[in-house]
Structure formats: structure tokens, C-alpha cells
Amino acid sequence: MSALAYTLAIFILLTAIATALFRDVLSAIVVFGAYSLGMAILYTFLLAPDVAMTEAAISAGVTTILLLLTISRTTRPSTDRIFERVNVPAVVVVGAFVTVLGTLVLPEMYAVGDQTAPIWGWPGLDISPSVYYLENTVADTHAHNAVSAVLASYRGFDTFGEAIVIFAAAIAVLIVLKREVFT
């Protein structure tokens, strides 16, 4: 990871903490948008442009707009402080959790692109699914984006299920909000 990626990680950490601490909800939403944008750029460093685009469009764009619309219907608390009062027991619990994760779990994880990671195959398995997809996508589907090939072709039925879930969620929202103006 380059120095730029580390700077980005620090930026993400700071915006995440600021999101939690800001007392003004509008400020929190704006900082949260910055956090999502930082995450999107970080995903490109991790060679996941598809995820980065989704993060930028959905998290930084649509979610921010929906949150802004939502708080436009609420009242703003009279703020004399900038930051929220910190709940010490909660911080201790979350801090302990993060410490355990950071010291015990994180060192056990494989480095990005590590060829010995289980995703490249494990004993007793002839060829791992990911290797199969990477090697056979073009021959099987004539598509050059392996991610799209997995989503639309190899696992098309899963994608159908996801599409139905989004459809059902939108219908449910419309039914719940039917008494509002959307008719």
C-alpha cells in the first residue's frame, strides 16, 4: 500500500469518528458522504472498481440525498456544542472489541493478492471456483469482465433473487408511504 492509501485510510478513520461525534445531524451527513467517497477511492486501491463505483453512486450519492431529505422533515436541536457527549461505557465496550479484532484477527488475515489464500484453492480441490471463473469466463460467456460474468451468467439465478428483493423493497416502501403524496 502506498503512502496515498495510508493517508486515505487515516482520512476514512477521521471522517468515521467525526460522523459519530458531530451533534449536528446535517454535519454528520456531510461528513458521512466524505467517508463514503474515501471508501470508494480506497476500493480502487484494492483493485475493486466495480465495488468502488457502487460505493460512490449509492453510498456517497443516493444515501446522502435520502438522508438529507429525511432530516429536512425533522427539527434541528438547538446546539451549543459541536460534538456529542461521549458515552464512556459504550466507548469502552467498542474499544475492547476493536482491540481484540485488531490484535487477534487482523494479523491472521491474508495479504491482498496473497497466492496462498484459500480463495486460490485448497488441498483436495482440483480447481477453486475463482480460478475457474478467471480462466474460463471468456470462453464460456464471451464477456471480458469476470465480475459481470459471475453476476449475470454463472450466478444469474442469485442475481434474479436480488433483483426481486430490490423490487419488493421498493413496493413495500411505496405501500408504507402511500398516505403521502406518491400516488
Binding site: P49, D50, M53, T54, A57, T141, A143, H144, N145, V147, S148, A149, L151, A152
Partner: peptide
């Protein structure tokens, strides 16, 4: 989307 990064969701 089938040939370049991105896709129909994005």
C-alpha cells in the same frame, strides 16, 4: 458492463 469495469447495477 460485460466488457469493462462497472455493470448494470452501477
Amino acid at each position: 458492463g460485460t466488457d469493462t469495469p462497472g455493470g448494470s447495477f452501477q
